[in-house]
Structures are given as structure tokens and as C-alpha cells.
Design a protein around this nucleic acid. Structure first.
Length: 261
DNA sequence: AGTACCACCTGACGGC
DNA sequence: TGCCGTCAGGTGGTAC
């Protein structure tokens, strides 16, 4: 699931449940999820510390410790967090379990193991090294325009490229392009200034709406793409059957009539 | 540089 | 019922 809005909801969840409590235990249930750190080192670094604040950049969530380093979480296609008390409530696919001295636990869950858990000393350096582009919800218009102007290929491929803009994933990219009435394969260098402006505004609207709806795409207005994003469904504007093509290796839904090339 | 394809994983679903 | 191919809201590497 997790694109920017989902990760933002998970960040808020961690912030309301897991701050200011001393970490008693860290259990790595599947070490394939760890990136750049061993299970024993992760445990050594975290036990005795506490998470004091949270942040997010694109699809990454960070829990900052009192020591100054940060737990970095990426949720892949199937990750989530669960905060609970009794171990008999331990969720399925729990890959990393953090136990606090108050008896509660924070579980990083990931069915498909496509995410990552790591520990970083400096979040800005981490973002720079990945590298990740500016966060899709915090980026200003000038920066947004500049990074897209450097690209030439299909607009959807650029929106999905985390090095360009961080946070947009497959379904919110589809919604944004539907809102802008742009075909997913539109070449970026064909975009006029006002189309880039509109793309910027719609990107923000889509992502902010998704956060407001707690990342539940089915709660988008009936007039948008997401509630209808299924094979054989029709465009809410013109009733054409949605087209389905592959762009940037991902399935794209679009209205063949409203979103001409 | 852009794109297409494979790989990493697990599970759900439809067709036969 | 069971097997098989395909697909899933992510990303990195490779080869053209």
C-alpha cells in the first residue's frame, strides 16, 4: 500500500503511540528486512533509548531517538505498524518488534518483505545519499518545476521516480494525471508552463486529500479516478471505459477520451 | 537519458 | 479441489 499518504498516516500513528517511552527490547523476527545494520547492532543502539519525535520524507518514515540517530522505515508494498500491549496480539508478518518499558510494543509488519528497516545517523545525509528528490507535499512550485524540467520522458515515469519527487506512487500518480487530463505517456518536454503549474497543484490536492481521508483511496470523490480504478470501470466524467497500459513498468489506468496524448 | 525487463517476496484471484 | 499464470499502491540493477 504505502505511498506518501499511507506513510504519513503511519507516521502520525507512531507519533501518537510510541514517543517518550524507554525501549526495553528489540526483536528482529526476519532479518531480511534490515538494511545496513545487523539485528544485534540495531538492538544495541536502540535499547535504553526512546523515540522523541518523528518525520517523513516521501515514502520514508523516521523515528528520532534521544541519542540523535533515527530509525528509518520504508514500507514497500505491504508494510504497516501496530502498537499493542499483550504479545498474544502480535500481528501477522511482524518483522521487527520494539518493546517499551510500559509493557507496550510497536511492531513493524510487512507481508512481502519488500520494505526496509535501518538506523541512520543523519536523515538529511540519508536523503542526499539515496538519493531522494524533494518531498511531494513540501516541495515549492519553483523546485517542482525545475526538477521536472530536467526530465524528458513519460510524465508518469518521472512522477514515480523517487529521485525526482519523493512520495508519489502508482495509484496517486494515476489520480493526479486524471485530474490534469494528461495521458501517462505525455512527454515532459511537451508540457507548457501552465500545465506544470496545474500538475503541481493537482499533485498537492491529491496527496493532501488522501491524507485527509486517512489514505483510503475509496473515499475519494466519485468524480475522481480512484474509486473506479478497476478493469472495465468507466470514467466518471465521460463514461468511457478506462484504458490500461504499462508505463514505467507499472499498470496505468487512464481515460482514453479525457486524457489524450 | 529513457525504457524494458528481471529480481526481490508473499498471497489472492481467476481460469482450466 | 488443485495447479498455474498473473497481478499487487515499491525499488534496484542491468542491458539495450
Amino acid at each position: 500500500m504505502p505511498e506518501l499518504p499511507d506513510v504519513e498516516i503511519l507516521r502520525q500513528y507512531a507519533a501518537t503511540t510510541s514517543l517518550h517511552q524507554k525501549i526495553k527490547k528489540v526483536e528482529v523476527r526476519d532479518r531480511r528486512i534490515l538494511v545496513g545494520i545487523s539485528a544485534s547492532k540495531l538492538s544495541r543502539e536502540l535499547v535504553g533509548q526512546s523515540f522523541e519525535s518523528t518525520s517523513r520524507h516521501g515514502k520514508y518514515c523516521f523515528l528520532h531517538t534521544n541519542k540523535g540517530n533515527s530509525l528509518a522505515l520504508h514500507f514497500g508494498m505491504s508494510g504497516s505498524l501496530q502498537y499493542f500491549k499483550d504479545l498474544d496480539q502480535d500481528p501477522y508478518y511482524d518483522r521487527v518488534l520494539i518493546g517499551f518499558t510500559n509493557g507496550f510494543h510497536l511492531a513493524y509488519c510487512s507481508q512481502r518483505l519488500l520494505g526496509e528497516v535501518g538506523l541512520v545517523e543523519s536523515v538529511p545525509r540519508f536523503i542526499k545519499n539515496r538519493p531522494l528528490g524533494p518531498d511531494a507535499l513540501s516541495v515549492d512550485y519553483q523546485t517542482f518545476k525545475n526538477v521536472l524540467r530536467r526530465k524528458k520522458g513519460a510524465i508518469k515515469a518521472a512522477l514515480l521516480d523517487q529521485k525526482v519527487i519523493a512520495g508519489i506512487g502508482n495509484i496517486y500518480a494515476d489520480e493526479t494525471l486524471f485530474q490534469c487530463r494528461l495521458h501517462p505517456q505525455t512527454k515532459l518536454n511537451e508540457l507548457k508552463e501552465d500545465e506544470i503549474k496545474r500538475l503541481y497543484q493537482k499533485t498537492r490536492w491529491v496527496l493532501q486529500t488522501a491524507v485527509d481521508k486517512r489514505a483510503d483511496a475509496s473515499r475519494f470523490p466519485k468524480s475522481s479516478l480512484l474509486p473506479h480504478r478497476m478493469r472495465g470501470e468507466r470514467c466518471p466524467r465521460c463514461k468511457s471505459i478506462f484504458g490500461q497500459i504499462t508505463v514505467g513498468g507499472r499498470t496505468s489506468y487512464f481515460c482514453p477520451r479525457c486524457q489524450k496524448r
